[in-house]
Design a protein around this nucleic acid. Structure first.
Lengths: 130, 130
DNA sequence: ATACGACTTAAACCGCGGTTTAAGTCAACA
DNA sequence: TGTTGACTTAAACCGCGGTTTAAGTCGTAT
């Protein structure tokens, strides 16, 4: 079975080595093997798990919650319901956040429209600012 | 012209008073008037500006950048191009973030599908985890 | 032999975005 | 009169998510 050094894992997943060490310390990378010299050995499964960690992070799941997820994975099939529940709730949270951002974008679009207009026909009145 | 106390502003915009004081200190609420006793007086324009601050925050604009925006507003029409540019760039950043979250949601959906299946016909093989 | 590059550790440090605390002022009400 | 309640300040504190630093250990190439 192939193993990857921390440098290789870092390069493949585009995550700093310091972050990988930090994640291991936080419990996000359990059972990480070491070679005789004490160097971390990342298995394919660890890279896969890291991929999951990364997309959970991309959707703003806190590290403490990702750790709970990883712990549940380690406990095997009897935690599938909890994991399913966690993912469903997280999905709703993500959809809500996307909705909020999308809604807030409308305000930004209004500003863009206003400013675009004002740069075109310069120097009018109607200065709402401040 | 009507003014609002910090308590009223807090209630109307659903932002803690401590946060409003923090925003003022950070320069997000310039020219905030005070009454004879030194209490903050929020004008309608300040509430409007706070609304803008809030949606910029909702789209993850850093406070330092929001401050730049507010400063530019205070400098009048000659900063309209900068503001337009800022907002266009910010919009692109927000769209990129939404795209990343949306993409990452696919991984979450796959997990939900997997776990839903596994809770239905329990106890199969195919345990990829860890 | 030695020097370099890739790794190790623990601990300190960082920026961000607030929140909390402690002590004080003021107006209104009982 | 005195005690609430709404406000003020500066400074300390917080959780989060890492990053940086300093000192050390290897294996390999010169």
């Amino acid at each position: 079975m192939k193993y990857y050094s921390i440098g290789e894992a870092s390069a493949r997943l585009n995550v700093p080595e310091s972050t990988l060490r930090y994640y291991e310390k936080k419990g996000l990378l359990p059972h990480l093997a070491r070679d005789e010299a004490g160097r971390r050995l990342f298995s394919e499964d660890h890279l896969t798990l890291l991929g999951i960690v990364i997309y959970l992070k991309n959707t703003h799941m806190p590290i403490s919650v990702i750790k709970q997820y990883v712990d549940w994975v380690g406990e095997g099939d009897r935690t599938i319901e909890q994991r399913l529940d966690m993912m469903k709730k997280h999905k709703q949270a993500v959809l809500a956040e996307i909705a909020l951002m999308t809604e807030s974008l409308k305000g930004i679009d209004k500003k863009i429209a206003r400013y675009t207009n004002r740069t075109q026909h310069r120097a009018q009145q109607g200065n709402e600012e401040c």
